[in-house]
Write a protein that binds this DNA or RNA. Structure first.
Length: 866
RNA sequence: GCCGAUGUGGCGAAAUGGCAGACGCAACGGACUUAAAAUCCGUUGGGCGUAACAGCCCGUGCCGGUUCGAGUCCGGCCAUCGGCACCA
């Protein structure tokens, strides 16, 4: 198809309807208490992961998820829900700032321009967003509340007794700063010289920055941290109740990395001090022949005797010089140094050497381990290299080689637990250690506290000032804290934040100065979905009533309006009902947002403890060559180019027709043409071109009864499309509508009733085309109410699918041998009789004995013979 | 190495344990046209077979199992993609 000639005049009808929707505020969802709000309707909150407005503009990956949610939003409106379907901009953060630096313009300008471009593009696709709820995280009216939430986090602590966050006032200790959920700590951070900032663990991939791919090194710095580790247990546990892809749940569980085990104390020889190690295999304690400390372990300085000092110092320097990148690359070969000190194994009473090695991480557990070379792969490698003793204490149940056996088996050479299987041995040795006061049960997590400050300009300033070396929070009334207008906002490279350059701004009072760091990109996206509920509220981050309505579960009626199908409907227990976005946020945004949400929930601001009830990940769209879309391959598809040639409706439908939403799939321009052809057929089913070349309502459209066959296809389509939208199987819904259109294209006249049904079903997918055709039908077949979107969703009536006769399959030994039309009510006995009398069946069973006849009414008969 | 997802025509894909390949693309043939485009109709997994129909056999990554019957369920492998990766 040459794009020169439009398959139908989408270039006129699409802008027309987009303008109308805007003028009529067609998709505005009023809040409780506002004019037009209908409390009788249940709510449905369907959310996209909002984009960060990069300079590249929209690519075809964005609208894939957006189209899916738009179809659901439009469908749910038909179904009588109050639908909250908002969009906004994740406009603070590194990508926006990197783009500004690249183009030499202030991020405020580039951000504004990029948002404008994104907005134009999204509007051109015809999404039914409530644009009156548009928000931008870099807008002071928005980040004022981001800062406010930070204050709530800063002003609370996690009470281990209650398992919840509480106001800091309930903390009875004398140093509240030591327990705040937001705190300052001197930690070894991920410093990225190229970006001039520190990064969170989650933002570092293989020793490089996620943004830009620049090397990252370890470096001790004083930074703001959020105590996400306090929530580790709940972040794992409460995943359970969520309707999320199992893979994403697993990713989060693994990232949090819970392990059960024990902490065991080793008495240091010639010292009062004890050395505590963490292990998941306390049952192997008798095989512990040495200890290893991480090079950064605080006891290293204490225990190393004079004669070993030099060597240990050399090793530590060498270890800290290694970047994460190097550590990752030269993984295998282990290194270490003997500390010169010894400790007592509490099980054996033996003196074991203490080593220092960087295969032990300072940030996990206690930063020290007991080396059990016989039953741990890493310890074995280390022990072999440095010639340390190896003692077998577990044998495999199958009688295999015990040395180098890392699994669960039977304890041996371990008097206190001799002969016990691993699980029991663990329990018993822990009890044994607890009795002697030299150990206890313990749980550890891989998850570290969230490094929350950045040395960048384009982010939220902290509502914090420093005085005499101590931090204080600013009052909620003083918000927003607006960053100073800086001409030179580039990173300094030294680790000093760019805000330091604004000398006036920094000076808060005679004695106090402002915090110079800014918050990371994720801050805004941690709560933006809450702001959408009440985006213009100047008094509160979200009003109680709006939060309860849109995010809540039982305070308002939620009964699903009776679906005409028996499809399983997803039961919501509150929060966002459907959240669609890419997998790349599996452990970043989705973990951080859950954490903030739980803190706000604990403090009594929210009705649910989880933000996103149902999550769906859309798959990546590849280029036509099957490679990832990238400038480098020249295979990037611009949505606006596609829309110019085929229209927004064709673009939307193609994105949905490509294949299952969650699957990775390649783009195909000829595929777009196919879908455009389908829409053009819908157009010509309704419209005819007259002599003057104008489109008029086709005379073949008539007010006539549907034939039985037509009724069947209409109702089959209602059923299929309805069920498929509920299951997000949009590709098969479109396929069914194609079957519908193909069937009616060949008929001489088109019943207006059938056409109307199709237009409603098609509306969520191709809203412009269906609206236009509906309106045109009204010229000759007036109907009230007038608009397609005011119609009820068609009801599927099973009686139209029922037939008098049904075709059944005749099989012999599982192979199809014939087809037969029988009355619908044929009994099993009748079917069996018919089958055995069938000539072709008889041919295949001739000379054989019939052993069995399987009869499935309305389906098949299988004759088993040999 | 560990964890997860996915393997079906030339391509994107579809199939409550019951006719594998719906729907679309591409290709081929035909109608319309002076012609082309557009549109409409038809054919299209592979093989054997027939003058033509018919008919038969094989076929969902590989091997095995359960079942009257397996793309679908179970066990074991292989490949691709994604995540984690010295977490004791």
């Amino acid at each position: 198809m040459s794009p020169g000639r439009k398959p139908y005049p989408f270039d006129q009808i699409e802008p027309k309807w987009q303008k109308l929707w805007e003028e009529q505020r067609a998709f505005h969802a009023p809040n409780p208490g506002e004019p037009g709000f209908d409390p009788a309707r249940p709510k449905y909150y369907v959310l996209d992961m909002f984009p960060y407005p990069s300079g590249a503009g929209l690519h075809v990956g964005h609208p894939e998820g957006y189209t899916a949610t738009d179809i659901v939003a439009r469908y749910k409106r038909f179904r009588g829900f109050n639908v909250l379907h908002p969009i906004g901009w994740d406009s603070f953060g590194l990508p926006a700032e990197q783009y500004a630096i690249k183009t030499g313009q202030h991020p405020e300008i580039t951000t504004r321009e990029n948002i404008a471009r994104f907005k134009t593009q999204l509007k051109r696709i015809g999404f039914s967003y409530d644009w009156e709820r548009e928000i931008s995280t870099a807008d002071p009216d928005f980040y004022r509340w981001t800062q406010w939430i930070f204050l709530q986090i800063y002003q609370s602590w996690f009470n281990p007794e209650t398992g919840r966050a509480e106001p800091i006032a309930t903390f009875e200790g004398n140093d509240p700063d030591s327990v705040r959920l937001a705190y300052v700590a001197e930690v070894a951070v991920n410093w990225c010289p190229e970006l001039g900032t520190v990064l969170a663990n989650e933002e570092v991939i293989d020793g490089r920055s996620e943004v830009g791919g620049f090397p990252v090194v370890r470096r001790p710095m004083r930074q703001w941290m959020l105590r996400i580790t306090a929530y580790a247990e709940r972040l794992i546990e409460e995943l359970e109740q969520l309707d999320w892809p199992e893979g994403i749940k697993l990713l989060q569980r693994n990232w949090i990395g819970r392990s059960e085990g024990a902490e065991i104390d080793f008495q240091i020889v010639g010292s009062e001090k004890k050395l505590r190690v963490f292990t998941t295999r306390p049952d192997t304690l008798y095989g512990g022949t040495y200890l290893v400390l991480a090079p950064e372990h605080p006891l290293v300085d204490v225990i190393v005797p004079e004669e070993q000092r030099d060597e240990v110092r050399k090793y530590r320097e060498q270890a800290t010089r290694k970047s994460d990148l190097e550590r990752a690359e030269l993984t295998k070969e282990k290194t270490g140094v003997f500390s010169g000190a010894y400790a007592i194994n509490p099980a054996t009473g033996e003196k074991v050497p203490i080593w220092i090695a960087d295969y032990v991480l300072s940030g996990y557990g206690t930063g020290a381990i007991g080396g059990v070379p016989a039953h741990d792969e890493r310890d074995l490698e280390f022990a072999r290299k440095y010639d340390l003793p190896i003692r077998v204490v577990v044998r495999p149940k199958d009688g295999g080689e015990p040395l180098g056996f890392f699994g669960e088996g039977i304890a041996v050479n371990s008097p206190a637990i001799e002969g016990l299987p691993t699980g029991e041995a663990k329990r018993k040795i822990i009890a044994w250690l607890e009795e002697r006061g030299s150990g206890k049960r313990a749980i550890n997590y891989k998850l570290r506290d969230w490094l929350f400050s950045r040395q960048r300009y384009w982010g939220e300033p902290f509502p914090i000032v420093w005085e005499n070396g101590r931090h204080h929070s600013l009052s909620a009334e003083s918000l927003p804290i607006v960053p100073p207008p800086l001409a030179d906002y580039k990173p300094t490279g030294s680790g000093e934040p760019p805000l330091a350059k604004a000398k006036e701004w920094v000076r808060y009072s005679e004695t106090a100065t402002r915090e110079l760091n800014t918050m990371p990109q994720w801050a805004g996206s941690c709560w933006y979905y809450l702001r959408f509920c009440d985006p213009r509220n100047g008094q509160r981050f979200v009003s109680e009533i709006a939060e309860r309505y849109w995010m809540g579960s039982d305070s308002f009626p939620k009964k699903e309006i009776a679906a005409s199908t028996d499809t399983e409907t997803h039961i919501s227990v509150g929060g966002v009902d459907l959240y669609v976005g890419g997998t790349e946020h599996a452990v970043l945004h989705l973990l951080y947002a859950r954490f903030w949400h739980k803190v706000l929930f604990d403090l009594g601001y929210l009705t649910t403890s989880e933000p996103f009830q149902r999550l769906v990940n859309q798959g990546i769209i590849l280029g036509e060559d099957g490679r990832k879309m990238s400038k480098r391959w020249g295979n990037v598809i611009d949505p606006l180019d596609v829309i110019a040639d085929y229209g927004a409706d064709a673009f939307r439908c193609y994105e949905m027709f490509m294949g299952p939403l969650e699957q990775m799939k390649p783009w195909s321009m000829t595929g777009v043409e196919g879908v455009a052809r389908f829409l053009a057929r819908v157009w010509r089913l309704t419209m005819d071109e007259n002599q003057a070349g104008q489109w008029i309502l086709s005379p073949t459209v008539q007010e006539i009864e549907l034939t039985r066959a037509q009724l069947k296809i209409v109702h089959a389509t209602i059923k299929k499309v309805t069920e498929d939208i509920e299951n997000l199987s949009f590709n098969t819904a479109i396929a069914q509508m194609m079957i519908f259109v193909n069937a009616f294209t060949t008929s001489e006249s088109v019943p207006v009733l059938a056409l109307r049904t199709l237009l409603v079903l098609l509306n969520p997918f191709a809203p412009h085309l269906s609206s236009e055709l509906w309106e045109t039908l009204g010229e000759r077949f007036p109907i009230s109410p007038h608009g397609v979107t005011e119609q009820p969703w068609p009801e599927f009536a099973p009686e139209f699918l029922v037939e008098d006769e049904v075709e059944i399959v005749l099989q012999v030994n599982g192979k199809v041998r014939d087809h037969l039309v029988v009355p619908i009510g044929a009994t099993e006995a009748e079917l069996e009789k018919i089958a055995l009398a069938n000539e072709r069946v008889r041919g295949f069973i001739a000379g054989k004995t019939v052993r069995k006849v399987i009869t499935i009414p309305k389906k098949l008969v299988n004759v088993v013979a040999n």
